[in-house]
């Protein structure tokens, strides 16, 4: 997207680069005009995210310049821009991964044994499931303030159904990987038990002691 300002005319990405290097005085750039122009024009769905990132970076930069003297060093600012640079690098690198995956379609080799094993599902027993949850329960230390959080098993069931709607299966460890605390773990476990009982899901392993997978029926 192009920017037309009294002190700068050119792509918005260049404006950000120059502003970072003090090549353009960000205080003389009217950001509201840039966003208004953008909204008035025709937006490309693929570029909206990138535009938001750039404009928020410009906002951040301008607010820093307004609040502090230019000579001060801003650790926070450096981290912020490092994160943006990191994102740009990984966005470019993702193209390489995409090419590699595309190319992998042209190579054939012996199918790993894992695929054979996946056909042989072993139903996970209740005691095995409880053993897994107990281990995880004990590893989740409760520290600090205890917040009473009302969480319903039915809501958790809905959440799991939603997650399983797009993908057929999910690993048990992934399902509980980012739970906030022990209470949410217990609620999730009760939800899983209810779902197994109602025959909404199955809990399986592909070999003894292997990770547990939750599969929707």
């Amino acid at each position: 997207m192009h920017v037309h300002q009294p002190t700068f005319v050119g792509p918005v990405t260049e404006l950000l680069d120059l502003s970072k290097k003090n090549g353009v005085d960000i205080l003389k750039i009217r950001l509201s005009e840039i966003t208004s122009d953008y909204l008035a024009g025709q937006q490309n769905i693929n570029e909206i995210g990138q535009f938001l990132v750039i404009v928020s970076a410009l906002c951040f930069l301008k607010s820093q310049r307004l609040l502090f003297e230019e000579t001060e060093s801003f650790e926070e600012e450096a981290t912020f821009f490092q994160d943006i640079e990191d994102y740009k690098l990984h966005k470019e690198a993702s193209l390489w991964f995409s090419d590699k995956l595309e190319f992998s379609d042209n190579i054939f080799f012996n199918i790993p044994a894992v695929d054979d094993e996946q056909e042989k599902e072993i139903e996970v027993s209740l005691s095995n499931l409880i053993l897994h949850v107990t281990e995880i329960f004990l590893s989740k230390e409760e520290k600090g303030e205890i917040i009473i959080d009302e969480m319903r098993v039915s809501e958790k069931i809905e959440e799991i159904i939603k997650r399983l709607a797009e993908i057929k299966r999910i690993s048990f460890i992934n399902l509980i990987a980012n739970l906030r605390d022990r209470i949410e773990l217990v609620v999730t476990f009760l939800a899983l038990l209810e779902m197994v009982r109602s025959e909404l899901i199955r809990a399986v392993q592909y070999k003894p002691f292997a990770p547990i997978w939750i599969i929707r029926r």
Partner: peptide, 9 residues
Amino acid sequence: LITLSIIAY
């Protein structure tokens, strides 16, 4: 793809 790149590196 971007998530895969971040995890890989």
